[in-house]
Simulated assay, not measured.
Amino acid sequence: MRRFQILVCDGPSCGITHESERLVTLLKAGIAADPGLKPRCHVVAYNCFGRCSEGPNVFVRPLAPGENGDVEPRDVSGRGFYPGVTEEMLPVILERHAGEGTPVAEWVEEY
């Protein structure tokens, strides 16, 4: 069973200007409502992706076996970066990327 960590930027721009806390709340609610996602997904605030003008930014990354999904990683890289995330995008990201394991091609970028 693949597990995912969903990082939501909480840096000065995303956290305040782009209200990333709202995204965290919505992600957690969406995961809690889906029995298939609940045991496999962790939502964590991330310090900063360095792309503040594009926020709010979210990164979905697979967790390694045994990796603690509640701990903010030091570095992130790969195909899982979603800039400019809106509330409407979240259910799609949860269903397709976290649920099916397929990044949402029209929104995702390499980071």
Results as ranks from 00 to 15, higher is better:
R96Q: 14
V104D: 11
F49V: 02
R3K: 15
D70G: 15
F49G: 00
N68V: 14
C52N: 09
N57G: 10
F59R: 12
P103V: 01
E109C: 05
E67P: 03
G11S: 13
L26D: 10
C52D: 08
R51S: 07
E100W: 09
T102D: 03
G69M: 05
A29R: 12
G55Q: 03
D75R: 12
L37N: 09
R79A: 05
G66P: 10
C41I: 04
P12S: 02
F4M: 06
V60G: 00
R51F: 06
N68G: 09
G30L: 02
L23C: 14
L26I: 12
C9T: 11
R96Y: 03
A32C: 00
R3Y: 09
E100K: 15
R40G: 06
V85D: 04
L63I: 15
E95S: 13
G84F: 01
I31C: 03
D10E: 03
A64D: 13
F49D: 00
L23K: 14
E87Y: 05
N47G: 00
P39L: 04
C41L: 06
K38W: 03
P91F: 09
E67K: 03
V24M: 12
G11Q: 12
E21Q: 08
L37Y: 11
F59V: 13
G69I: 03
R2K: 15
C41K: 02
V24E: 13
E54D: 11
M1V: 09
R74P: 01
E95G: 10
I6R: 05
M1F: 08
K38I: 00
V92N: 00
D70R: 14
G69E: 08
M1Y: 07
G78M: 03
P83L: 07
E88R: 11
P65V: 04
P65A: 07
P103R: 00
V108R: 07
Y82P: 14
G99Q: 13
V76H: 02
G55K: 03
V60D: 00
S13W: 06
V85L: 05
C52F: 11
G66C: 07
R74L: 15
G80W: 02
G15L: 11
G15Y: 10
W107P: 01
A105K: 06
M1D: 08
L90F: 14
L63V: 14
R2G: 04
A32K: 05
V60K: 00
L23A: 15
G15M: 05
S13C: 08
D34S: 12
D75M: 09
R51K: 11
